[in-house]
Each structure stands twice: as structure tokens, then as C-alpha cells.
Design a protein around this nucleic acid. Sequence first.
DNA 1: TATTGTATGTTTGTCAGACAAACAAGCAAT
DNA 2: ATTGCTTGTTTGTCTGACAAACATACAATA
Lengths: 260, 260
Amino acid sequence: MSKTEADIAGMGETAFRADRIERKSLTLRERTADAIRQAIADHRLPPGAHLKEREICEMLGVSRTSVREALRHLESEQLIETVPHRGPVVVSLTEEDARDLYKVRAVLEGVVGEQFALNASDEQVALLRRLARGMSKSARKDTPQATLGIIADFYKVLFDGSKNRVCAQIVQSLNTRISIFRRLSLASKGRPKAMLQEVERIVSAAEARDPEALKQACIQHVEGACAAVMRQLAAGKGSSGMQEPPDRPAKQVNTGRKSR
Amino acid sequence: MSKTEADIAGMGETAFRADRIERKSLTLRERTADAIRQAIADHRLPPGAHLKEREICEMLGVSRTSVREALRHLESEQLIETVPHRGPVVVSLTEEDARDLYKVRAVLEGVVGEQFALNASDEQVALLRRLARGMSKSARKDTPQATLGIIADFYKVLFDGSKNRVCAQIVQSLNTRISIFRRLSLASKGRPKAMLQEVERIVSAAEARDPEALKQACIQHVEGACAAVMRQLAAGKGSSGMQEPPDRPAKQVNTGRKSR
DNA sequence: TATTGTATGTTTGTCAGACAAACAAGCAAT
DNA sequence: ATTGCTTGTTTGTCTGACAAACATACAATA
């Protein structure tokens, strides 16, 4: 999955090609942010949860400084909302937000598709095909977990091939936000099958190098996912990162004075 | 420009309507972030500039803590890039980045337009018309500065009316990034006139409540701006937030040991 | 002379401690 | 039931400190 990293021009002597040394483990604050983000993504920190910096410090064993800087990052990613002097809270999404999120993701993935058709290398197209095959195989035999991994790879190739960093980065960020309630998506009945068809359409369009078709295929794919989520929401009202207007209790923990 | 803030239902007694108390001056770190962001936007901190936290502290008279938290925010907004142990640097945009940025902005503003046609209130449509008139008047008589203010208002109405917070927020963020080299846009010859026409088209479509037309009008508007910038770039190579592959010197300030 | 190594000042990353201000919740007084 | 006071909690911000990573001048070396 590593990019081929164009050869270094004129480096004298025999071309010295080797993988650069990865800038190892990020800074502490970044890892802290990752940890929190992950916790939010898989609901260990549910929507509405109140993050107290002290608790996070102890939980992760880092100082307040690092935690706070990490929080600022998540704040700007809209994963948490901070009311001054009240501390950050994991965002709760309204049904409207969900719809908007998907709407935006749809058009952006459309752009990604369009540009993939124009800019991707032949290898990337081939890789896409291979991953699609792997995906449908995995969907039948493996655990959903494993399938999700392939899906992630699939997206990675799509983004890389589109050569549109800006777009890819935004979609990524949107996806994190969406993950706050996407657990529903995979549960939807008949969704897996539909999904595989959508993917097939995407790959075909990619192989045909047809920008318009690929764009439409990507959009439809997102719309499919969106519809599935909405259906689920309509049914099982609750149990997910949604917030209805008149509703707020529970989830509160002790704050302020204790009984004495 | 304040929203009408739906009346409070059943509040007993005579309806008590008054503007809520604005959560006054944000926290220090937010104002710090704003200050830096502003400085970047109007090139007091040019692309490539190396931000040293100590300097910013003194410049703004705040502690390192606040500065660093502000920086984390800007970092996640992609206005600065931070290499561990080297400190943050104002991003330099490649021509490709510029194109991508505009491309994304175009489709997103398309969404905004579409949704404005569907969701905006009649007052908002009327307001849009009024602002458009003001804009063309201002373009003839006032300073470009004043006109820019009206444009900002125009956008604000557009965003509010679209009722798509997610989208609006992203476009906003994109615009900040674009501002790193947009100064060119207004300079482009004949651009103001073209711009006014585009705006006129937007307003007409809004009044007609035609989603598709409004969408197209918005997209065309962005594409117009993009084209103008690209033309400028092609001409006056340099003097702006661009980075060409083989080029890096100058702009460096003293770092490390001084002569002694 | 060009290369390699060493020394030293800078700047960032992270921690710990401190304190005022904002907040939340209980209790008391009306 | 309303209002006000009291007090523990939590955040916002500052200060000081120190190791690690860097950058560059200067020295040593081939």
C-alpha cells in the first residue's frame, strides 16, 4: 500500500532507494487525540458524554497539557463541543445533521470518483478491482470486522487515485463524524448485498475510465448508505448518537458538591 | 442580521422577547486563534513563515499555554503545518491545491445554493436581493474594502438560508484557506463586473426558487473566481502563497546560534 | 578543500503546580 | 415555591522547569 515515491533525481552513485524512516510514534498529544477519537468512534464515549480532563489524564496517563491540546484538535474536527467553563461534550447529532453530513459526503465522493477516473494510475484501477473481489468474498465468509478492513483499503485507493488531497481529507473527517452513528448501517437488512452491487458499479466505471459514470456511482453508493441509516433510525428510535429536542436526562455523572 | 429566534412557547406572562446575552468575548485561546488566523489571511504571516510560540506570546501578550492551544486549532484547520520539534509553518499551497480547493468549494456552494432555494425564508430571499443591489452600488462608489464587507454579508445570508450547517461550516473553512492567495482575485481585470453578473444570476434563481438553477449559478460563481485566480497566477508567477517544487530559500529568519 | 564531528544556543514537547473565575448543587431564609 | 448564600468542582490561564530534538558555528580530520 506504500506509494512508489518517485526516484530521487541525480543523487550521484547508485540510486539509493529505501523506505524513508517513518517519523515514528507521533507526539504524545497526537496519540492522545487518536485515543479519544477512537473512543468516540466506537461509543466508549457516547454522544453527550461529558469529558473531564482530569479523568482523561488518569485514563491515559498523560498530563493535562497534552490532553487539552488534543481536545482543541477534536474540537475543531467537530467531534466535541466545548462550552466555556463547562468542558467538552461529545457531539450529539440531530437527524438533520445526519442528513447534511451524508449529503456533503455524497457530493464530495462524487468529486473523488470523477477525479479518480481522470487521474488514477492503471495499477490503482486494477487494485480497486482486486479489492472489490476480496470484499465480496469476505462478505460471505469472514467476520464483518475483516470486511470493514477491506472497505477501508478500498477507500484509501480511491482517495489516493483521485489525487485530490483536499477532498479526501474532508471526506475522511466527515466519516469520523458519521461513525458516531454509522454502526447502524451495517446492521440494516439487505444492505450488504446492495453495497456490493454499488461497489461493483464503481469498479466498472473506474475500469471504463468514465468520469461521469464513476461520479454517479459514488454518489449512489453514499446515498444508499444514507438511506439505510435513515431507515434504521426511523425504526429503532434511540440507542444511537441522536438527540431529540425534548430529552436530556441520564448520562449525567456527579459534578459539583457531593452529599455530606 | 440576527435570526428571529423563535418565540419561547408558553412562557407565561407577556412574551418576553429580547436578544439573549451574547456569550461575550470568547476565551482567550479563541481570540488568540482568531488573531493568528487573521494575520495569516492577510499575509502579515506569509506562507512559509515560521511561527515561534515565544514570539507570538510576546506579540499578543498571552501565555504559551493559550498560544499552543490556539495553534492546535489552526493546525487542524490546515492553516499551519507542524513538523514535530520544528514548530508550525504557514502552509504553502501548490497550484494543484488551489485547484482542488476551488473544486471542492464549487460543489459545496452548489449544495448550499440548492438547499437555499428549498429552505430559505422569503425574508432571506428578499435580503439577498437587497444585498446584491448594495453590492453593485458599492462596487461603483466605495472602497473595495467596503464591498468585501457586503460580500461577506451576502454569503452569511446564503449559508443561513441553506439550513445546512455542516456544509456552511466546511465552506467557511475552505474560504479561509483560499484567502491565503485570494488577494489576487479582486485584482483580476474585469473580474468585478463578471462577479456582479454572477451574483445577479444567483439572486434571480433564488427569487425563482429554482434549486437546480441556483445550484448552477453558485457553481459558476466559484468557477469564475477560480478562473480569475488561475489567470493571475499564470501571469504574475510569484508574490503569492504558492510553492513551486524547486524553491525554498529566503523567508528564513534567524534560528539557532547567533554569531558571537 | 571538502567532509565529518563536536559544542552550544534555540525551540519545542511535556510535566507539575498554582489560582481566579465560572459553575453546580445543597441548604437556609424568606 | 422562590431567592440567596455557601462550598466543592472544573475549567481557563499563567509560570517555571527540563529533556529531547534541532540548527549552526567552529574545530578537527582526511
